[in-house]
Simulated assay, not measured.
Amino acid sequence: MELDECVHTLTESFEPFAPEARPGDRLLDRHADRLHFDERNPTQDRRPYLAELIVKARANPSTVLAATDDSVPQFNQYQAASAAIIYKGHRELERTCYVSGRVTAPDVELNAISYAVCLAVKQANCQHIMVFTDSMGSAHRAVDPSMHSGQAFSLSVCRALQEWFEADDLHRITFIYVPSALRWDIHGEAHKYVTELKVRVGCRKTANSIDMLRSRATHSVLDSWSSTSKDPTYCGSEFLELQWPDRWPIQPLYLNGGPWISTLGHSITEFAHICQCITGHMPIRAYYCRFKINEPHGCTCGAALQSCQHILFCCRDRYSVHYPCFLRDIALFLKHNPMAFGFNWDPSGVG
């Protein structure tokens, strides 16, 4: 098998009909009161809160502490790595660190949480497990047995906790958010431990999660899109090139709806209006001229041609002058000029 084929081969398997995923039998259905998530509070200074929390936890002989972290190298020559360290009080019980292949950060953190939980439930005289992680999204996924990237790790967590909960009604687990930038206490130790492991990607087949393959496909399409969007023959001569406030041209993105939807998508009608303006597909007189429609081509202000550029930057007859260069400028322009780039309605009712 060629190296390129290894990179793009899915290696994880899924259980679409796992018993743990049946409604009513899921861990969160049966034991929701024993699963707790100590989420991030933006108004809270996390360091003193965590310091007080761990002092109390270490003083309890029936509490097991687990710190998890991951390392996802920026460059593809190294594999991602996971680490989990188990403590009781100030005493370290176990630690493990291993490579996870080519996976996303949530995948590898989920992997680490899975190992931490499976190690913690095996500890003697343990009634409360506290898992310190910098990825609460992965913590929630850890107890979600449905089909998703890393489902096998979630199923192992659900099975381990299900058996552990059934053994004693007092057993419970808490996932605690730790900002990675703090390099705090046992979580900082897990971070140091995982970043020391560096394993190069070789010619042998490595793990590839479905989220990683989706990410690679997305970035490939995005790179192609970004490249073609710079070609005027692709965008068309009428495409309105806009800028960010720092004067960099707006490039296509897919995160959070991309720059256009995230900025302007609050109203379908307004967004459609703005799209017509940006792409040059608006029913103005330059459009009539281009397609040889028997309508006037000149602007009402006397200009020979009513083009998009003329309306936005030159016309002082019917439109307020804004000279828009940014997305929000376009939105503001159309708010002040709701009839700009619109159809001229015939009095008889025929547009």
Results as ranks from 00 to 15, higher is better:
Thr133Glu: 10
Ala217Asp: 06
Leu305His: 06
Cys6Leu: 04
Ser149Thr: 03
Val350Glu: 12
Arg200Cys: 11
Val199Cys: 09
Ile261Lys: 15
Arg91Leu: 08
Ser156Trp: 04
Tyr98Lys: 07
Val55Lys: 15
His336Gly: 00
Ala190Ile: 09
Gln77Ile: 06
Ala167Lys: 13
Pro73Thr: 04
Cys315Ser: 06
Gly351Ala: 07
Ser156Pro: 01
Val72Thr: 12
Ile113Arg: 10
His336Met: 02
Phe17His: 15
Asp33Arg: 08
Gly89Phe: 03
Lys205Asn: 09
Met147Lys: 13
Arg159Cys: 11
Asp223Met: 04
Ser114Tyr: 02
Glu241Gly: 09
Leu35Ser: 07
Arg285Ala: 15
Ser307Val: 11
Cys277Phe: 11
Cys126Thr: 15
Ala207Asp: 09
Ala116Val: 04
Ala139Lys: 10
Arg285Gly: 11
Trp225Val: 00
Ala167Thr: 11
Val201Tyr: 02
Ser229Lys: 00
Tyr234Gln: 08
Val7Phe: 02
Asp38Lys: 04
Trp225Gln: 00
Gln74Lys: 05
Ser146Tyr: 02
His266Asn: 15
Ser138Trp: 03
Ser156Lys: 14
Ile129Met: 10
Glu94Val: 00
Ala340Gly: 11
Gly236Met: 13
Ala83Phe: 05
Thr11Ile: 10
Thr11Met: 05
Arg318Cys: 03
Val199Lys: 11
Tyr115Asn: 10
Ser262Val: 02
Asn256Thr: 02
Ile311Gln: 07
Asp246Lys: 06
Ala304Tyr: 10
Ser237His: 12
His266Pro: 00
Leu255Arg: 01
Leu222Cys: 01
Ser267Glu: 11
Gln309Ala: 14
Ile54Phe: 12
Glu270Gly: 06
Val194Asp: 12
Asp70His: 02
Asp38Gly: 01
His266Tyr: 12
Arg316Gln: 10
Leu264Asn: 12
Gly298Arg: 14
Val103Ser: 02
Leu170Trp: 01
Gly89Val: 08
Cys289Tyr: 14
Arg30Pro: 06
Thr11Ala: 05
Ser348Thr: 04
His266Ser: 15
Leu240Phe: 03
Phe341His: 06
Ala167Met: 07
Val199Arg: 11
Thr133Ala: 06
